[in-house]
Design a protein around this nucleic acid. Structure first.
Lengths: 231, 231
DNA sequence: TCAGATATTTTGTGATATCATTTTCTTGTT
DNA sequence: AACAAGAAAATGATATCACAAAATATCTGA
């Protein structure tokens, strides 16, 4: 009965305990360290993190509001299962929201940002070499966020992150096949479109990027109604 | 120093205290009972609701995650201010997300649902007559949600509700001018498009519906950078 | 061996207490 | 009257406690 592996994250002094618990649990879901269907308890998490239940409850409730963790009526928490229908919805939503975000950030694209994103993209190759999938996932998200954040009034990122959280536990199984190279190629396409200031091409590249990361998993799912929770 | 008016809501026995606090605060923000810029404290809310701080903290943290309430570094909570830029972003996001939702629900439209939505729309006339703006807001949202919920795998509603929460406090000032009649007309357009199974017309009606509820407020805002917090 | 009842443990919930900060009020000085 | 300094009150954060409900383990009888 090994406790679930919650990847460690840096904790600064200015951070409250609740904040730390939230960040750590959120990161665990985001990078897919917890399989779909994983059962949790407030007190179990508290013990595992060496904290009292109070800040854990606040953290879990927040993640519940983001659809990242289910709070079941009986007294268990669960990482949501994935279904074919829900998966399709989430992917379509990602495409809609992320192309929207790109469109709203488009006027703010500058050469400087393109350089920064290029550097970040190059860094991802290193993560692949190291087989550091956690870092790869985070860097991939940072790459996308860097674009969407260009719009100074953006309100879309929290919504997109909720989708990433919902896809995270399932998506991990895809990334483990290291089709991640495809993702990188799509990033190159995105950067090319940004250099040419071509909005249509940028949105097309984003859509491809999202779809590529989903085809495999879609196939996997077609073999059963559910995925995850093998044990 | 009258405490902020948090509209009362029904409380069932099966409800936990945290859940009740969340629902009540959320409703208050949603219907715009709290003006933008309103300052709050955990303990103040606890006292006002006759509860201990613990469940209040959980409720407020959830609302913070939904961008409905700001948790400032100093020790105050605040209903976010509105800016022109953010307002424009939120409205555009609503249009993108709600037309997306309509598209994904489109195949599930049935005559029965159209009848139900028609009935709900008629009920709104009554709320206008009674000048019950809280009920009007809720019924308007229920009208939209009834459509978006048709897709059994929908994951979009929580995202849309986050936008409604962010617009709520500001939008209230608009509705108070009772331009709400326009909204109703747009609902009739939506219903007509649904009867004709015309997706394009449905999306156009939704976009008009959202824009109509925003023009006035946009104008109001152009006179200053901020709105609300009149004190 | 297995099903059902009972006892034990675990869990979620919410109030309370404590502590360090921060805010606010008071006071004194220029 | 204005402003700075210090005292008092209020606040956020989190551990702990008590209670009821639920889950799990144990026991009993066929």
């Amino acid at each position: 009965m090994t406790p679930c592996p919650l990847p460690e994250i840096p904790r600064t002094d200015a951070m409250t305990t609740q904040e730390y618990a939230y960040d750590r649990l959120r990161n665990a879901v985001m990078v897919g360290a917890l399989r779909p269907g994983t059962a949790l308890t407030f007190r179990g998490l508290a013990q595992q993190l060496g904290l009292s239940p109070t800040p854990i409850r606040e953290a879990v409730r927040r993640l519940n509001t983001e659809q990242a963790i289910e709070v079941l009526g009986n007294r268990r928490l669960r990482v949501p299962e994935m279904t074919i229908g829900r998966f399709e919805e989430l992917v379509q939503l990602r495409i809609t929201l992320e192309t929207h975000a790109a469109e709203r950030s488009f006027p703010y694209i500058s050469d400087i940002v393109i350089d920064q994103m290029t550097a970040l993209d190059n860094g991802m190759d290193g993560a692949i070499g190291r087989h550091d999938l956690d870092a790869l996932t985070r860097m991939n998200q940072d790459f996308h966020k860097m674009l969407y954040r260009l719009n100074p009034d953006q309100a879309v990122i929290p919504l997109i992150e909720s989708l990433w959280l919902q896809l995270g536990p399932f998506q991990r199984q895809v990334i483990e096949d290291i089709d991640a190279i495809n993702v990188i190629d799509r990033h190159k396409e995105m950067l090319a479109a940004m250099r040419g200031r071509d909005l249509m091409a940028l949105c097309a590249a984003i859509e491809s990027d999202i779809r590529d990361g989903s085809i495999r998993s879609g196939r996997q799912m077609l073999r059963g109604t559910r995925v995850g929770a093998h044990s």
